[in-house]
Design a binder for these strands. Structure first.
Lengths: 200, 200
DNA sequence: TGTACATCAGTGAACGCGCGTTCACTGATGTAC
DNA sequence: TGTACATCAGTGAACGCGCGTTCACTGATGTAC
């Protein structure tokens, strides 16, 4: 990566974007504010990303890369289906919590260019890591398991947990119930999911 | 409800907002465009909702009301836990698909005022309908079931399915797998969830 | 029933603002000879 | 090694635009007497 005046402006812009979105939500984002935070003129981002969509797509791709790396690492060398489900679930939730700006953009589908090859590559890699775990569930617990349906189920459940996380504490407060820590929820989710998929 | 010049402008504005967001996403929303679509001057919305947040909060509250009504109706008179899970799951997905604009606002938590009493009332009502089904699962299938964790699990899974739905066809295309219809997915999800919660 | 008045939904012009984009430019980095 | 040139990251002024908000207003609806 060439280092010119700034050092690595594209990375700095992604970082500033992630911060900004984590603070204000996707609706509070603007190119000018990002440039301000990165300490460059507001015309600079165009040199690297063209427009807003280009910058956000790059951010989403970075998020998927981090996610795929974490999921692959979590799955590596774990031979028990339940334990592997727990680990990739926990890694997903951890990455999502550590990168709220990235995830906000990844989840909302009207902000990014879905055809971007880098974004596709890493998102498919993350999905494949999940599929691998489903194959393990099938081999160990239920030969009739439909891999695609099961993958979708787990993906939806964990992603749903991540989206709901900010609301859970509010609901707990409003309905007067106790608040279960996210880590424990992930483990329970993994148990429910694997047991559910194991049932014939 | 009083009928003045327009008839029922608040409802017309909510409707226009839902349409606009369903088409362009939350980021494509503006008060002026909504007023344009409703056929009134751009200053009119302020008379009813104050500002953007007020309008979107009202839209979210309407969405939760529709959702709670549908879930309560779906649950009514169904005594089998699995069947009830299937029905409220299907009703959730149906309402979400029929009201994409409402759901986009309900899900994204930086757009609405979370303290709004109407919004709270209906969202709690929807959650309570889900909890009732969890109690049925506990009574029929597993006396040790933790109601709150189980409710969160089902809520997250179904909501995750709804958020992912637009992406599922893309992924199916990219990975060369077949695309399972959403209705079938809901039934499979219900089976996984109930079996998972039934396991001890 | 009729009249006078109060209320309030909706108008339309005006405002200042932050936005994305454009473009001629500056000056540092990298390269050819 | 030294010089001349090409490349390109980042600047900063200028632009037109759609936005939300304000405010004096119009005119229809509802009410008091």
């Amino acid at each position: 990566m060439a280092k010119y005046h700034h050092g690595d402006l594209p990375a700095a812009l992604r970082s500033a974007t992630a911060e900004l979105i984590a603070e204000n939500g996707p609706s509070g984002f603007s190119l000018r504010e990002v440039a301000r935070r990165a300490g460059v003129s507001h015309a600079a981002p165009a040199h690297h990303f063209g427009d807003t969509e280009g910058l956000l797509t790059s951010l989403a791709a970075e998020g998927y890369q981090t996610l795929a790396d974490a999921m692959e690492e979590a799955a590596e060398g774990v031979d028990d289906a339940m334990e592997r489900m727990r680990r990739i679930g926990a890694s997903y939730v951890r990455v999502a919590r550590e990168n709220p700006g990235h995830f906000a953009v990844m989840i909302q589908n009207d902000l990014v260019c879905g055809d971007d090859p880098t974004l596709l590559e890493h998102s498919i890699r993350a999905y494949t890591a999940l599929q691998g775990t489903m194959e393990m569930v099938r081999d160990q617990l239920n030969p009739d398991l439909d891999i695609d349906t099961a993958s979708t189920f787990c993906w939806a459940s964990i992603q749903g947990l991540v989206s709901l996380a900010p609301k859970l504490s509010d609901v707990a407060e409003d309905t007067g119930t106790k608040r279960t820590p996210l880590d424990e929820l992930v483990d329970e989710f993994a148990r429910y999911m694997v047991e559910g998929m194991a049932a014939r």
